[in-house]
Nucleic acid binder design. Structure first.
Lengths: 193, 193
DNA sequence: GATCGCATGTAACGGGTTACATGATTGT
DNA sequence: ACAATCATGTAACCCGTTACATGCGATC
């Protein structure tokens, strides 16, 4: 007799991308669902995000697939809260996934889509719009720079994860700097014209 | 008696992002649904994509909202095909949308997510993975460069849209070049270590 | 005669976001 | 007393992808 499960199990035995994001966090240290949902906002959230309503069912699926193990604790809050630890097979699945080439992404960029129709806006408004967008990117870059300082301050411990954390941050910064330069050139071209 | 509509109308009178993408194409010239679905693969597809199953219902909604007008023709194919033209209010809505600041996007980047877990892969495999990803980006950049040549060849006509088309292409190239440089630095760091 | 391109639609499904629901502990 | 934070879950909805469905005209 199959027991009714409240969650949809993995049909093809492969976790979703969100599942791997959670495994990636749990490979670093055990966490509860709540802690994971906070982590998916700040550190990992820069390249993958999820709400708690997505995370809890996904954790149930990961546990069902034996990729993580959960243990009940009595922390604060009304319910028992469950702390999850990655399993050996979970770590293997994560490593295998991390070395697979990523599928080509559809690349949805609303900013570029707006640019595509900016020719029908009058030049002054267009300039304002672009300057505003550049300001947004400058702001993002500034945030990354603050984060980098945070890394520099508590160095000393050069754990194996640190190297890749720094690298992803630098990638974000490199991208933003390139885009800001592109904005500078574009606005100069518009003024010159 | 309200006539049953086969499509869900805009509840808040605002088209979705896809709707604006279609308006952006129709602002340049009238097209049929089929032509739009091809355009959403090649030119616009680099920053926004959609299948035809999404496009046809969206066109019905846009027409219902009077942002576009459709006229039946008897082209090839079995059915009447419908050619759509943007309306004055459609052009106004598009211009207004294009100057609005884009909402901060969740930024889902599977490549960066994989990088986040690459610390647990053995160094040689990690290097291979990264080199493969860099190759992908070099390939994308090469495609953009071919497209740029296409622009250079048929110049002469410098229509108002051309300027922004070139600009978006240059943005894509700037981003790819920055990422490739980042890969170079990262791989050098890994070798030096 | 088979396959490809034209041409338009519907249906099923999965992922993601927002809203609903509950309730304890800690700080103002 | 009230609000915020901790903590976990379900339900409804929207967007996007894949698959199903149909059928004409032209090329191989």
């Amino acid at each position: 007799m199959a027991v009714a499960k409240r969650f949809r199990a993995y049909a093809d035995a492969m976790p979703s991308t969100l599942g791997f994001a959670l495994l990636g966090l749990l490979a670093r240290k055990p966490r509860t669902g709540y802690e994971l949902s906070r982590a998916m906002k700040k550190p990992v959230g820069y390249f993958w995000s999820a709400g708690h309503s997505q995370i809890y069912p996904e954790l149930a699926r990961l546990e069902d697939a034996k990729l993580i193990r959960g243990k009940d604790e009595h922390g604060p809050g009304p319910r028992q809260n469950r702390r999850y630890t990655i399993s050996a097979s979970g770590r293997r699945a994560l490593a295998a996934w991390a070395t697979e080439p990523a599928p080509p992404q559809p690349a949805r960029n609303e900013e570029l889509l707006k640019l595509y129709s900016l020719w029908l806006v009058d030049p002054d408004r267009a300039r304002e719009t672009l300057a505003g967008q550049r300001e947004q990117h400058r702001h993002t870059l500034a945030q990354y720079e603050v984060m980098e300082q945070g890394f520099d301050e508590d160095d000393g411990e050069s754990s194996p994860t640190r190297f890749f954390d720094r690298a992803s941050l630098r990638r974000g910064m490199a991208g933003e700097r390139a885009i800001i330069k592109w904005f500078d050139g574009l606005l100069a071209d518009l003024d010159a014209r």
